[in-house]
């Protein structure tokens, strides 16, 4: 691992840097007042993870996904999950071709670089599983034949809060497939006012030009690996992970996979911040979205996972 001095923060080509900044700015121009969430979306993209947006209908989940799609020059598919959606509807299906006298695989909407899985928890567990397995393995197997998914492969899923009627909650083990889970919340007063007064978001998105292509994203994912995580930083990361395993309200703490995801996300966060090394602040910035949905709470009272995650963060000292 090469040591990086502040003078040369990152061996990131300046054009790539510019394009990344412009892409972030463009998405922020559409999704107003949600800089943090947009940032997390890019962390997920750069770190090679998938993103889960969980919130009430109508706060802009789909808008964020669409803005991302319009900003990134990637093949895009949107799948609206419903209770009657079948796995083959998203993966694809083999159909007997009369001309060729054989079965031909017809790829489903999953075969795209950016997939928007809207309202994922309205589908049955069977369909959810098909999606999540594809996300984990970057490939699908149909009729004994394996089909590789395109690269980069980035899934943005949205889901409604679990207490709404007509939802099939994702099992914990499958939530783990998402690197980050974010929520959007109501917009701030100013942002809402601008929403109300300015152009329709759909129209705005239609006018956007892509800023980054697949190659840029692949390059960024390469650079993430070279971001320095010093022994001191790893110490801090381990202290955080250990804290999740000993917290009174947490029944099952973070898995090693979650730890790896946390480090990868922190690296991506550092890269987005223009730094060649990870700071504790980078870890803190991504800690709640990376870990909250992976914590299995126990104890007497039902607590909010996000609140527990924040408490964990505040309880571990940065030395």
């Amino acid at each position: 691992m090469t040591a990086i001095t502040p003078d040369t923060p990152l061996p990131l080509p300046s054009e790539l840097r510019t394009r990344l900044d412009r892409a972030v700015a463009q998405v922020n121009g559409v999704v107003l007042g949600k800089a943090n969430q947009v940032n997390h979306a890019f962390v997920s993209l750069i770190a090679g993870g998938h993103l889960l947006i969980e919130d009430l209908p109508g706060v802009g989940k789909t808008t964020l996904a669409h803005a991302l799609a319009a900003t990134l020059d990637l093949s895009f598919q949107r799948v609206q999950f419903t209770s009657d959606l079948l796995p083959s509807d998203i993966i694809g299906v083999s159909i007997f071709e009369r001309d060729g006298q054989r079965f031909e695989f017809h790829p489903g909407p999953l075969f795209a670089q950016l997939v928007l899985a809207d309202e994922i928890n309205r589908a049955t567990p069977k369909t959810q599983s098909a999606l999540l397995e594809a996300m984990a393995e970057q490939q699908v197997t149909v009729d004994g034949r394996t089909h590789t998914l395109p690269a980069p492969f980035f899934v943005v899923a949205t889901q409604n809060p679990l207490d709404l009627a007509g939802t099939y909650p994702l099992p914990d083990s499958q939530l783990d497939r998402f690197m980050l889970r974010i929520s959007l919340d109501y917009p701030s007063r100013e942002a809402e006012r601008e929403l109300l007064t300015s152009t329709n978001r759909q129209e705005l998105i239609a006018t956007l030009n892509p800023c980054m292509n697949a190659a840029d994203i692949q390059a960024l994912r390469q650079f993430v690996g070279s971001v320095v995580a010093s022994p001191a930083l790893i110490d801090y990361l381990q202290a955080l992970i250990a804290a999740t395993r000993s917290h009174a309200d947490v029944r099952i703490g973070l898995s090693p996979r979650a730890g790896l995801a946390l480090l990868a996300a922190a690296r991506a966060q550092a890269l987005l911040g223009g730094r060649g090394y990870v700071l504790p602040e980078d870890v803190q910035a991504v800690f709640v979205p990376v870990t909250a949905h992976r914590l299995t709470l126990g104890g007497a009272g039902q607590r909010d996972r996000v609140a527990v995650a924040r408490e964990l963060l505040a309880g571990v000292a940065v030395r």
Binding site: P6, V228, S230
Partner: peptide
């Protein structure tokens, strides 16, 4: 602080 960050976090 720049020196501290550099020493503690920017190198292994």
């Amino acid at each position: 602080f720049a020196r501290y960050l550099q020493l503690r976090y920017a190198q292994s």
